[in-house]
Design a binder for these strands. Structure first.
Length: 354
DNA sequence: GCCGTCACGGTTGAA
DNA sequence: TTTTCAACCGTGACG
C-alpha cells in the first residue's frame, strides 16, 4: 500500500482516514489526560479531534488500554462443527425440542459457554439449513466431523477468545524480526492488562525518537501493530518488556520527524513533508520552545527504564491542570483512572509535580 | 466553550 | 485469487 497519503483535520493535524492514530499519539492523549489536561486542550494540543480524544479516553477508561481495536476480520464462528453436531444430537434425541432449549443444553453440557453459544435464531437456522432432514446424514455427522476445520480448527470454546485473533498463530508478522508471542487481540474483548498504559508508559523506546524516526511511511498494517503492541507488551523482551521492533511497528505509522528527540510525537509534524504521514499538526502548535518531552519526561516505569520528570511537562505545558485546580469539575474519567493506574500499575504519574 | 454521541467515509482481514 | 462483509478507525457535526 502506498503511504504518504492522509488528510488534515480541522485542527491542522494529519490523519489517515480509516486508520488508527499512532500509538504514540494515543499514548500522549492518555498521558496528558492523566496530567489533568482537559480533553479539549488535548485535542488542540495534539490536533486530534475531540471526538477522537474522547473516544480514546473512554476506551482507556473502560479497558485500561490505549490500543485500538482489532480492525478487520470476521467474528469467529459459533456454529462450529461440534456445535452443529450437538444440536443435531439434541434434535435427534428430542425432535420436538425448541431452539431455546437447545441453547440451554449447549450451555449446560458445556458445549458452548455464554460467549459463544449460538443465538436462538442461529440455532433455528442451523436446524433448518444444516440439520433440516434428520433422516439424512448430516455433513457433520457421526463424530467424524468431516469439514475441514473439524475439531481443532476452532476453539472448542472461544468466548471471544478468538482462536486466531488472540492466538499467536493468528498473527502474521510482516516483520520477521519481530517475535510475537501473543496474537493480536481484539481489544474490547478482554484486554489483557499487559496492554495497559502503564505498561506502555514505562516504555521509553515506545516513543523513542529513534524508533519513531525509523518510521517509513505508513507501513504497518493494523494487524501488525496491533499484534505488535498487544503481543509484545505481554512478552518480556526488548525494552521494558517491549520489543523495540514492536515499537517500530507502531511508529511506522509515519511519524517521521527524525528530530523527535524531544518527542513531539504528534506535535512535531513537519507539515511540509508528510502529507499523509502521521507527523502531527501541520503547523506546530507546540512551538519549538515548548518541548514536550513526552517520554523522557513524562512517565516513569517501575522497572526503571524511564526517568520521569514531570516538571518538564509541567513547565512546558501551557495548560491548566485540572487535577490541581479543584475549581473544576472532575475533568475526566481519567482522574479516576489515574489512581487506578498509579496504584495498580505502580505508575508514578504524580500529576501535580509538587 | 466543553463534552458525549453518532453518521459518515474509509481501511482491514477472515471467511 | 477475488469478493463479501463486518469489524474497527478518526473526523466532523450536533445537541
Amino acid at each position: 500500500m502506498d503511504q504518504n497519503y492522509g488528510e488534515v483535520n480541522q485542527l491542522g493535524g494529519v490523519f489517515v482516514n480509516g486508520r488508527p492514530l499512532p500509538n504514540a499519539i494515543r499514548l500522549r492523549i492518555v498521558e496528558l489526560a492523566q496530567l489533568g489536561i482537559r480533553p479539549c486542550d488535548i485535542s488542540r494540543q495534539l490536533r486530534v479531534s475531540h471526538g477522537c480524544v474522547s473516544k480514546i479516553l473512554a476506551r482507556y477508561n473502560e479497558t485500561g488500554s490505549i490500543l485500538p481495536g482489532a480492525i478487520g476480520g470476521s467474528k469467529p464462528r459459533v456454529t462450529t462443527p461440534n456445535v452443529v453436531k450437538n444440536i443435531r444430537d439434541y434434535k435427534q434425541g428430542d425432535p420436538g425440542i425448541f431452539a431455546w432449549e437447545i441453547r440451554d443444553r449447549l450451555l449446560a453440557d458445556g458445549v458452548c459457554d455464554k460467549y459463544n453459544v449460538p443465538s436462538v435464531s442461529s440455532i433455528s437456522r442451523i436446524l433448518r439449513n444444516k440439520i433440516g432432514n434428520l433422516s439424512q446424514p448430516n455433513q457433520y455427522e457421526n463424530g467424524k466431523q468431516g469439514p475441514p476445520q473439524s475439531g481443532l480448527s476452532y476453539n472448542h470454546i472461544y468466548p471471544y477468545s478468538y482462536p486466531n485473533a488472540m492466538s499467536p498463530s493468528g498473527t502474521k508478522m510482516s516483520n520477521p524480526g519481530v517475535p510475537v508471542t501473543g496474537g493480536h487481540v481484539s481489544i474490547p474483548r478482554g484486554w489483557p492488562s499487559a496492554h495497559t498504559v502503564s505498561n506502555i508508559l514505562g516504555i521509553r523506546a515506545f516513543m523513542d525518537p529513534t524508533a519513531i524516526a525509523s518510521a517509513e511511511g505508513y507501513a504497518p498494517k493494523m494487524e501488525d501493530w496491533s499484534s505488535v503492541n498487544r503481543a509484545t507488551f505481554a512478552s518480556a523482551h526488548g525494552v521494558n518488556g517491549i520489543d523495540k521492533s514492536a515499537i517500530d511497528a507502531d511508529i511506522k505509522y509515519p511519524q517521521p520527524s527524525s528530530t523527535l528527540s524531544s518527542y513531539v510525537p504528534a506535535c512535531a509534524y513537519s507539515p511540509s513533508n508528510q502529507y499523509g504521514v502521521y507527523s502531527g499538526p501541520a503547523g506546530s502548535y507546540v512551538s519549538p520552545g515548548h518541548h514536550w518531552q513526552a517520554q523522557g519526561t513524562s512517565l516513569s516505569h517501575p522497572g526503571g527504564g524511564v526517568a520521569m520528570h514531570p516538571s518538564d511537562i509541567h513547565s512546558s505545558m501551557a495548560f491548566k491542570h485540572a487535577v490541581r485546580d479543584g475549581d473544576r469539575k472532575p475533568p475526566s474519567p481519567l482522574s479516576k483512572q489515574q489512581q487506578h493506574l498509579s496504584s495498580i500499575h505502580g505508575l508514578s504519574l504524580s500529576t501535580s509535580s509538587s
